[in-house]
Design a protein around this nucleic acid. Sequence first.
DNA 1: TGACATCCAATGCGCGTGCATGTAAGGTTC
DNA 2: GAACCTTACATGCACGCGCATTGGATGTCA
Lengths: 142, 142
Amino acid sequence: MEAETDVDVCAKWSETLRVYHNTSCELENELQSRHDLGRSEFEVLLILSRECGAAAGGKAKMKDIEAEMYLSQSALSRTVTRLEKAGLVTRAACDFDRRANFLMLTPAGLERFEAAKPTHRAVLVKHLVDTTASQPAAACSR
Amino acid sequence: MEAETDVDVCAKWSETLRVYHNTSCELENELQSRHDLGRSEFEVLLILSRECGAAAGGKAKMKDIEAEMYLSQSALSRTVTRLEKAGLVTRAACDFDRRANFLMLTPAGLERFEAAKPTHRAVLVKHLVDTTASQPAAACSR
DNA sequence: TGACATCCAATGCGCGTGCATGTAAGGTTC
DNA sequence: GAACCTTACATGCACGCGCATTGGATGTCA
């Protein structure tokens, strides 16, 4: 079953690439143009909004967020810096472990996130519910 | 079926991200460390080796390659430049349309590709045959 | 207390990417 | 053949990423 596995695996990878590429490109484009948010930035907001419940003004440690994302420590650090500059998030030192940082959603951050959520959902539904919907190997935005 | 679709779609995306991330990171690492090839570079060689049959010394137009990859025109151009510098590929002008470039696999390129192929296959099999194999959200190389 | 390993986050650096643009070569129309 | 649009590829540029390193805070052990 060597050759057979070969073909299956290549086709499966190809399919994964297609879905990943189409979805993530459109996610990036839509989030960026409609809400001025990158994919990573949105994801951080998403995690924050879950972490303590949006009402509580989500709050989480950098390390915990990092563990939930496919992002290096340095990339997360910079993503948070961008979010902070945009006023969507606040860094707060942890009193019990001054190495660690807490991250908090600001009201503006929560608002931005809530606004972007439907966009996010719509793109996912479009590309993932009926996988054949985005069949062509559509490039990023061209 | 709103909420249900929501959950399904998020889980599916999450799963896709996991598989994509784990597979592509390991692909990148393995190809780079064992064969000094990036993922895009390998893919170009792969396409070339198919295009006219490896024995014929694969040959294809840039545009045709671009159409088969999830890569922008500029990124492909630079990837080919890297391959050319490494002596794995040759650019050749097309006599009938001097805008177009043909791309040819050199013997060294074919050799490198054949050497890397098993590595590529092994990674795909590892991550895609039994999807639960790489369950943890393993980061890139950490 | 002092020496050393470990952990968290920030930063310098290089790389590959996409977008926008530039350049050269068709193709079309008059 | 002149004016114009389109196509193929290369290149300037900015950006986000990962890796390696740094610096400060903790923990541990003698």
